[in-house]
């Protein structure tokens, strides 16, 4: 481990620097022997995974690799048939307030009768608990989050009247409002325009700078080295996990995606 660290610190790349800090830091998420099945067919098989605190991590893998399933199982949305998940050493249901989740944009009905601000306010519901209603404080937090993602002028817009990129920003704002330590995002770049993609990745990088852990299901392999400092290769089984600099190579890509996957990795 130590020799590896020294090798990193030769270059002053921010990625490896923060990765090193993370190496020394706490484990934010620990997944042990996790198996998830749909109708007895395993979609995730015996996953062991440690996500260090403060990394910006991509989960990559082909379609049907179980990337979304992994996130959902970590968040207790899906019940695993075996294994366990801990967030800072405790089960998820005790750590909800530390975790924010951005589901796939396509998982909700955007024709639902509500406006952008209201969707962002939903991020505050977790800290409110059952029955209690959001008040002035929650509204203020939601407006601030909208400001951060550049969507304040759209706060009263019906959500179906927003573009795909704007909808994704609303989802991001909703996660920001939770003020969590760990953020899970399911394909936040899917179907968004280039400006939104840059805006989102900048916010994610800011989160990491603030010491948060960010886990993103990601599809575009080309941008992995540019956006992320940590990566997990997944295809039903875990193929590899670690710093992008060390493990994002043709070998692991081929193992994950099958026959001779070549991607020009910009080092």
């Amino acid at each position: 481990m130590n020799t590896k660290k020294n090798a990193h610190s030769k270059d002053e790349n921010r990625n490896s620097l923060s990765a090193d800090m993370a190496d020394a830091g706490a484990i934010a998420v620990k997944v042990d022997d996790l198996t998830v099945a749909y109708n007895y067919k395993p979609v995730l098989w015996d996953i062991d995974l440690e996500i260090p605190e403060g990394v910006l991590m991509a989960i990559v893998g082909p379609n049907g690799a179980g990337k979304s399933t992994l996130i959902k199982a970590i968040l207790g949305i899906l019940k695993p048939i075996a294994g366990s998940v801990t967030i800072y050493g405790k089960p998820y249901h005790k750590q909800r307030s530390h975790v924010a989740y951005v589901p796939q944009k396509g998982s909700v009905d955007w024709d639902f009768p509500t406006v952008a601000l209201d969707v962002v306010m939903m991020g505050t519901y977790g800290s409110l608990g059952w029955i209690k209603r959001p008040g002035v404080k929650e509204k203020k937090a939601a407006l601030e989050a909208l400001e951060k993602v550049g969507m304040l002028p759209f706060k009263d817009r019906q959500i179906s009247q927003l573009s795909g990129g704007q909808q994704q920003r609303i989802f991001l704002a909703r996660a920001l409002v939770q003020d969590a330590s760990i953020y899970f995002m399911d394909e936040p770049f899917q179907g968004v325009d280039a400006t939104t993609e840059i805006a989102i990745i900048n916010i994610l990088k800011e989160l990491r700078k603030a010491g948060k852990t960010v886990v993103v299901v990601h599809h575009d392999l080309q941008t992995v080295p540019e956006y992320f400092d940590w990566v997990t290769f997944l295809n039903v089984k875990k193929i590899a996990t670690g710093p992008v600099k060390d493990i994002f190579n043709d070998d692991n890509l081929t193992k994950t995606y099958g026959i001779n996957y070549k991607v020009s990795v910009q080092k």
Partner: peptide, 8 residues
């Protein structure tokens, strides 16, 4: 609106 977030 969003059962996934509701569960999480």
């Amino acid at each position: 609106f969003d059962a996934g977030l509701s569960a999480s």
